[in-house]
Amino acid sequence: MPEIDAAVLVLPPSLSKPPQPAVVVRARGLSKRYGALEAVREVDFTIEAGECFGFLGVNGAGKTTIMKMIYCRIARSAGELRVLGLDAASHAQEIKQRIGVVAQENALDPELTALENLLLYASFFGITGAAAKRKAAQLLESLSLTGKEQSRLQELSGGMKRRLVIARALVNDPEMLVLDEPTTGLDPQARLLVWEKLSRFRESGLTLLLTTHYMEEAARLCNRIAVIDEGKILAEGSPLELIDRFAGQDVLEVIGGDEELPDERTVAALVRRRERHGGVHYLYNSDNRVLLHRLAELGFEPKRHVARAATLEDVFLNMTGRELVE
């Protein structure tokens, strides 16, 4: 029997494990200081090609500062930040050439029409003439803005303006779309439409990076979320992972005083975590039905309660506290 050379059986590395996804953004110890204010404190994160990564946090948490460093609008104070493999400080123009940016402010030109806004922006990327017109028409159509070419800013609704900004950010066929609070201030219908468009881009393989303070938005769009507060990343993972890790499956909200529930130690044995805020007991547990049944056995049947599944909101509020921070 011929001897088989062992080396032949070793698969080439590309087949032995799944291909490494390309890293689009890589931050290590990234910090930003404004005088005494530390807006971003040594954050680490990695965003891979094709994913939708979201920064979830309240206003002032540092989300916008991180985004501005990524799209090279402001310089970092310390740490490392590479976008598309390039250093954000020394290769700003090359990075800008290859990404799409939807900043928090629309910054649409009120003196130009919708179409002129797109064509001017395209020209900055060297896209001009018939190619620019074709691209603009295609983007207006894909963002449901056909027929608005000649409209000026004041004739467009908030949702239309936002979609126009998204169209503008796509003129250069970017390798990553960066969106800072894409739906803040939009009415529910306008928000749904933006979500639908962004989902479609995500499905087509475009890398999305967004910030939001809407839990629903993060849960719906993002496959990975970083919860950020006071310039630091508190947790990172998929929406389901985060819910499972920090809130549990279910939440039972019991409205009323302490007399509605058994003593603290008994309750602690039944739930993963409890919290009380503003006359409501929040009981984080794995199954509301089981919990209600156990409580009934102990002689407690809270009259006013809400039994619901845990959401990202619970994760978020668990981490950052239910008190309003201003």
Binding site: Y71, R73, Q93, A107, Y121, F124, F125
Partner: peptide, 14 residues
């Protein structure tokens, strides 16, 4: 007020 330059510097305009 009009964000004209702000949009330019998100594009590769120096």
């Amino acid at each position: 007020f009009n964000g004209v330059y702000e949009s330019m510097v998100t594009a590769p305009v120096h």
